[in-house]
């Protein structure tokens, strides 16, 4: 009969009226965030970073600015550079994560947060100080080692630099790229 399908449509909307809303009321409730979520604020481990600027080179937009100078221990070949600037211009960032993919020493991670709204564009530049002070809640994006330890950025505790690498942290300190930092930080050796 003509009009029957229209009645069926009314029934569909009526059943949906009875259903629980699909909405997530954002500030109070949050959707489940998946561990691979590529968040806005980057997680950076200064201890792991050598200042090689692979991330800056691999960024499709060139928004990572790294300025280094030879450190005091520069004569020792293979020592890390002293990082003066590590700026990430979030306003142009498209969160593709290629910088994270390029990082050879697992020093840079995507973050898990996403509430970075600012009133001025200049505030959207993440400076090295902010990177240093930020909570370390790295996303597991492109970091299988975090996935295998079942790390959940939102709920698990923040990770220190020793726990996030592909290899053991001692390797980072001692052997990587011929890096020699003996005695520099006694606590770490302990």
């Amino acid at each position: 009969m003509y009009g029957l399908e229209m009645a069926k449509g009314l029934l569909v909307t009526l059943t949906n009226l009875m259903r629980k809303p699909f909405t997530v009321a954002y500030p109070e409730q949050r959707v489940r965030q998946h561990p691979r979520f590529r968040g806005e604020e980057f997680t950076w481990y200064e201890e792991r970073c050598t200042g090689c600027a692979s991330c800056a080179k691999y960024c499709p937009l060139g928004i990572i600015k790294i300025v280094t100078s030879p450190s005091e221990t520069a004569p020792l070949q293979g020592d890390k550079y002293l990082l003066e600037t590590f700026d990430i211009e979030l306003q142009r960032c498209m969160f593709c994560g290629l910088c994270v993919e390029a990082c050879p020493y697992d020093a840079l991670f995507m973050g898990s947060g996403f509430e970075e709204g600012q009133y001025r564009r200049t505030d959207l530049v993440i400076s090295i100080d902010r990177l240093r002070q930020a909570d370390k809640n790295p996303s597991t994006w492109f970091r299988p080692q975090l996935e295998s330890m079942d790390y959940r950025p939102g709920t698990s505790r923040p990770l220190g630099w020793r726990d996030v690498g592909r290899e053991g942290w001692r390797w980072h300190q001692r052997e990587k790229a011929g890096m020699r930092l003996q005695g520099r930080n006694a606590e770490d050796d302990a």
Partner: peptide, 24 residues
């Protein structure tokens, strides 16, 4: 998609030579 690659719209999931990582 977010589960797979951390983004919902701009996924960048595939790479030349496969996909960027296996599904969790």
């Amino acid at each position: 998609f977010e589960m797979l690659c951390g983004a919902r719209i701009t996924v960048s999931y595939m790479r030349p030579g496969g996909v960027f990582a296996d599904a969790p």
